[in-house]
Design a protein around this nucleic acid. Sequence first.
DNA 1: AGAGTCGCTGTACACATTGCCCAGTGATTG
DNA 2: CAATCACTGGGCAATGTGTACAGCGACTCT
Lengths: 155, 155
Amino acid sequence: MAIDHLDGALLELLAREPRIGVLEASRRLGVARGTVQARLDRLQSNGVIRGFGPDVDPAALGYPVTAFATLEIKQGQGNDVRAHLAGVPEVLELHTTTGHGDMLCRLVARSNADLQRVIDRVVGFDGIVRASTAIVMENPVPLRLIPLVKQAAGD
Amino acid sequence: MAIDHLDGALLELLAREPRIGVLEASRRLGVARGTVQARLDRLQSNGVIRGFGPDVDPAALGYPVTAFATLEIKQGQGNDVRAHLAGVPEVLELHTTTGHGDMLCRLVARSNADLQRVIDRVVGFDGIVRASTAIVMENPVPLRLIPLVKQAAGD
DNA sequence: AGAGTCGCTGTACACATTGCCCAGTGATTG
DNA sequence: CAATCACTGGGCAATGTGTACAGCGACTCT
């Protein structure tokens, strides 16, 4: 859980040049190879690094439209709705939240027209009372964690 | 842009066991190493695979609270707001959207109390008229792309 | 039909990297 | 003071990588 300064530098380096190896990383950071290896192992067993999965771009896959849908759920239907949404490939992410809606999910679609189909599929389920959708136009800040890592490392 | 069936299998394999090498992947998929190498290169130049950055868990970094904030922006202040939000480490992601709000951003914080500080910092800016926040309680479907990849590959 | 192109295979080779081990050292702790 | 811990720097065998090449079947264009 201790987010060291070296850990921070390592994470940043890995984020910038992911194909880098342990040896090369140790050279860049000016430490011994064993150290980098140990840090990496620790970060992974800590859960700080979940993995190194490929970062897939839905747009390049033919799904250039992203939207967020706020869902209102019928009492007690939560689990069914979760299962239903988990079965829809275009649902990239699902959260249960406080506030006006009960759930928030991230959707993608092949086009604005296709989004209609996706939404119909998403909300065409008994437990869902109401849905409101916001289509994403721009993504000025794509998902990033480095600034947070830096802050966590810098204290 | 052609999302082949082999491409799909490769992506799925990489997602499940990211530390796998090209050689091992070729063995698993039952194709020649050169093929896997060529596919990988193509997927990367296509932009389907953006990279292999480490998947960092904010919770493990000490930021277990996630929230989504919908922001309403003063006309013409878009760029300033974008720049402001980009400067806040706790802002993990920012989208401009259609619908009730003008922007949607994903935030993290060290605690519910800390979230107040983050929100204050986020909305403490001239161009922002109104903000409504939804705190994430559960994350039944964490960000996933494999089902989408499978669908894209299966046609 | 023939020529050219393309993607995949199977193989080869030199080189770099990995996983693992170990002795030594400096800082911190009880 | 002794023990613990993280880091260093070195060494080793095994493996993977980058790269190249020839052969082959499928496809397209003329």
